[in-house]
Simulated scan of single mutants.
Amino acid sequence: MSKFGLWWVMWDNGVYISRMTLGGRVPTSYDEVVQWFKKRYFDRVVFLGNQGENIGYTGNGYEDGRYLALWIMSHISSIKYYVTIPFSQYGSKKLRDDPSKGFANSYWKDWIDGVLSVFDNNRLGFFWSYESCLQATPHDEAHVTEEFIREMAEYIHNHNQEFIWIPATGSGSSVRGVSYLNDPDYDGILTIGGYFDYVFVQPNYYEYSKVDEKGNLGLQYTYEKLVEKVRWVYEELPTKIREHNPNAKITTASIEMEADRTVLGIHCTSPGDCPEGMNCDSNIHTCYEHCRDHHPQKAINYALDYVRALKDIDWKPSNLAYYFSTDFKVIDTLQEQCWRELNEPYV
């Protein structure tokens, strides 16, 4: 069983820096961050910076990819990892290239070549940072096609590297994603999922109180809906992927466990009291991040609902990905609470 942790980095004044902390404390070294992951049972990490907005960009894909690969290789050791393929430009939602023009001569192929130019035994492969489950459907505004993903996957696999994806599947806005799941007009996972070695579906239950379904928009995203979505990933998605692409590599389909610093209950009286990337709810004097509810205990409960859902459908995934923002104290808080309430570990 492998546990995939997300290692957030950021381009800052010409160099990369790690964004990971422990209880707000900045590590003394990158090796310390590696130990933070390992002590919490993560054996693989994914280096990423949103969908590319925090990843350096000069327009030269080869040099951009090589620079990040060299930084990782020279700073990080003793843990297996995947490196991001940034979709958007630094500090912008603007794309790094036009996917409709194909993969062969794209920025993204050059980026992969730049990363591959740096030899590192710890690198397992690449992470496709574009989260939308609408890609390869008529509703994808970025015009990412199945052919584009297929060619990128073949190129990566031909270099003996793995390819992973963590698609978003539901929110209060169909622009971010929908939960139609079995409708190929809206669910690109069915079409392109088979080109990845691992697909960790984001339930997005922790973040959003509403969910869109075919013919029913803005439904309450209840626990029952979460169970329904997780069950679909477990029971139906692998079959659907194989039906669409029987010749693709065997894909591991699982979910992403989702939580953030809202669970920490950081006190505030104004936004300036909160860590970077958080806001202050002045009504309850608590810093919050992306959770659907700003109360820390409710946030903890929503996070643990993912564990409850897995138990309810009797699924013990062999692999899981974990989003916990940038603070390992999130994992520690949920680990303690999960043992107390459910008599099992969160990670």
Score class of each variant (00 low, 15 high):
residue 3 K to L: 12
residue 5 G to C: 02
residue 6 L to M: 09
residue 6 L to W: 08
residue 14 G to D: 11
residue 14 G to H: 04
residue 19 R to L: 13
residue 21 T to I: 11
residue 21 T to D: 02
residue 22 L to P: 00
residue 23 G to R: 12
residue 24 G to D: 09
residue 25 R to G: 00
residue 27 P to L: 03
residue 30 Y to H: 14
residue 37 F to P: 13
residue 37 F to Q: 10
residue 40 R to S: 12
residue 40 R to V: 14
residue 42 F to D: 11
residue 46 V to L: 14
residue 47 F to W: 06
residue 52 G to R: 05
residue 53 E to A: 11
residue 57 Y to D: 11
residue 58 T to Y: 09
residue 60 N to R: 06
residue 62 Y to N: 07
residue 62 Y to E: 10
residue 64 D to P: 03
residue 67 Y to W: 02
residue 72 I to Y: 10
residue 73 M to W: 03
residue 74 S to F: 02
residue 74 S to G: 02
residue 74 S to N: 15
residue 75 H to V: 01
residue 76 I to H: 08
residue 77 S to W: 02
residue 81 Y to C: 06
residue 87 F to R: 04
residue 88 S to P: 00
residue 89 Q to D: 00
residue 90 Y to C: 06
residue 90 Y to M: 10
residue 90 Y to Q: 08
residue 91 G to A: 05
residue 92 S to H: 04
residue 93 K to R: 12
residue 93 K to C: 02
residue 94 K to W: 01
residue 96 R to V: 15
residue 104 A to S: 11
residue 109 K to S: 03
residue 111 W to Y: 14
residue 112 I to S: 07
residue 131 E to I: 08
residue 133 C to Y: 04
residue 133 C to A: 05
residue 135 Q to V: 11
residue 137 T to H: 09
residue 139 H to T: 04
residue 140 D to E: 11
residue 142 A to M: 04
residue 144 V to R: 09
residue 145 T to E: 05
residue 150 R to H: 12
residue 150 R to Y: 14
residue 152 M to C: 15
residue 158 N to K: 07
residue 164 I to S: 09
residue 168 A to P: 00
residue 168 A to V: 13
residue 171 S to V: 01
residue 173 S to G: 07
residue 174 S to N: 10
residue 175 V to P: 01
residue 175 V to M: 12
residue 177 G to I: 05
residue 178 V to L: 07
residue 178 V to D: 06
residue 179 S to M: 12
residue 179 S to P: 00
residue 180 Y to A: 07
residue 183 D to T: 07
residue 186 Y to D: 05
residue 187 D to M: 08
residue 189 I to V: 07
residue 190 L to I: 14
residue 191 T to G: 06
residue 192 I to H: 02
residue 196 F to Q: 11
residue 200 F to Q: 07
residue 200 F to P: 04
residue 201 V to R: 00
residue 204 N to M: 13
residue 204 N to V: 05
residue 205 Y to N: 10
residue 210 K to A: 07
residue 211 V to C: 03
residue 212 D to N: 15
residue 214 K to T: 08
residue 221 Y to D: 01
residue 221 Y to N: 08
residue 223 Y to F: 15
residue 227 V to M: 01
residue 227 V to H: 04
residue 230 V to P: 01
residue 230 V to T: 02
residue 233 V to D: 05
residue 235 E to D: 14
residue 235 E to Y: 12
residue 238 P to Q: 05
residue 241 I to W: 05
residue 242 R to I: 12
residue 243 E to N: 15
residue 244 H to A: 07
residue 244 H to F: 12
residue 247 N to R: 13
residue 251 T to D: 04
residue 251 T to N: 05
residue 252 T to K: 13
residue 256 E to M: 15
residue 262 T to Q: 02
residue 266 I to T: 10
residue 273 D to C: 04
residue 274 C to L: 13
residue 275 P to E: 10
residue 276 E to D: 12
residue 277 G to M: 09
residue 278 M to G: 03
residue 278 M to P: 02
residue 283 N to I: 07
residue 283 N to C: 01
residue 286 T to C: 08
residue 289 E to H: 14
residue 290 H to I: 12
residue 290 H to E: 13
residue 290 H to L: 14
residue 302 Y to L: 15
residue 303 A to M: 10
residue 305 D to Q: 09
residue 311 K to H: 13
residue 319 N to A: 08
residue 319 N to P: 00
residue 320 L to N: 03
residue 321 A to H: 05
residue 324 F to V: 09
residue 328 F to A: 03
residue 328 F to I: 04
residue 329 K to N: 15
residue 333 T to N: 09
residue 334 L to W: 04
residue 337 Q to I: 09
residue 337 Q to P: 00
residue 339 W to G: 10
residue 340 R to K: 15
residue 341 E to D: 15
residue 345 P to Y: 11
